[in-house]
């Protein structure tokens, strides 16, 4: 059966509505949801301005997916250096203003040479590969350096999202069914059981493309056929699950939208369900695709 999945356009207004909805559902998380919502608004604005210079037709897409290759090489994508740099500054400002501890290096980051146009590809490669960034000695804590990496990731996202939105309609889902994004090869942020029929979709942590995987098998390892996929939930809330594999110990949180009127906005859902990450960590599980 042929399945093609296309995202609904969120836009700045969509983000605002979603933030309002999630704050109502999770009032104890208002601050963090609002901070992340402000970042998402910026990403949506930028999404309308960036371009994706990859051009593929249905045939090329089919050939790539059939051989197990995502549509774009994430290390080759052209990044608009000026917009990227501006977005890093803006996100750093939001984090500084809207988080309890602020972001102490907001001024320094404006002088960081990793954002100079010639260095952007290297910075990009380090950030998406999860390698430590090289930043001057003044930045002593590796936690702070990680935070810069997290901010940079969010600023890269619109370029990848653009490619995702442009190409997702070319993806015949039955050709893929893997644990990484068919557009950019990144691990999933979270999953959703689709409202209409319960189809399991994962959403890319970078380009936010959704793709389909089979319900009762682990998409992350070759033991999937052997019934290694299990799930856990807290209390009676079976609609928020940790789907995990007893063989490879990977997990991905998944929200069941079948009883809901509106679609889940997974970056916010991810934050709202942080309790499940704590539970998963206690169980010795690791987010799918993360480093061991």
């Amino acid at each position: 059966m042929s399945i093609v999945i296309e995202s609904e356009e969120l836009g700045v207004q969509g983000v605002r509505r979603a933030v309002k909805r999630y704050v109502e559902m999770y009032p104890e998380m208002t601050d963090v949801i609002e901070m992340y919502g402000a970042i998402m608004e910026l990403q949506q604005e930028t999404l309308g301005k960036v371009t994706c210079d990859v051009s593929l037709d249905a045939k090329m897409a089919e050939a790539k997916l059939s051989e197990g290759t995502p549509l774009i090489d994430p290390y080759e994508l052209d990044i608009d250096a000026e917009r990227f740099r501006a977005l890093v500054f803006d996100i750093a400002r939001i984090v500084d203003e809207k988080s309890p501890e602020g972001f102490p290096h907001r001024v320094e980051i404006e002088k960081w040479e990793g954002l100079e146009p010639g260095n952007v590809p290297v910075t990009r490669d380090l950030v998406i590969a999860g390698e430590e960034l090289e930043i001057g000695v003044a930045w002593e804590s590796s936690e702070d350096i990680k935070l810069v990496s997290n901010i940079t990731w969010e600023a890269l996202a619109p370029s990848y999202m653009k490619c995702g939105r442009m190409h997702e309609s070319l993806i015949e889902q039955s050709l893929w069914q893997r644990g990484a994004c068919p557009v950019c090869g990144t691990r999933p942020l979270m999953g959703v059981f689709r409202k209409e029929d319960g189809l399991w979709l994962l959403e890319c942590a970078l380009c936010h493309t959704r793709w389909n995987v089979q319900r009762a098998r682990c998409p992350f390892c070759d033991e999937g056929e052997q019934g290694s996929l299990e799930y856990l939930y807290v209390g009676d809330d079976r609609s928020h699950r940790v789907q995990y594999c007893s063989a490879c110990r990977s997990y991905v949180k998944t929200v069941d939208m079948r009883d809901s009127d509106l679609d889940a906005v997974l970056p916010l859902e991810d934050i709202a369900t942080i309790r499940l990450d704590k539970v998963a960590a206690k169980e010795g599980l690791r987010p799918a695709g993360s480093r061991l």
Partner: peptide, 22 residues
Amino acid sequence: RRDFIKLSGAGLGTAAIAKLGF
């Protein structure tokens, strides 16, 4: 299936919440 193409970076979601003092 087993071999991700080494994309293990992360955004500001759950990974950074505790770091930021929430």
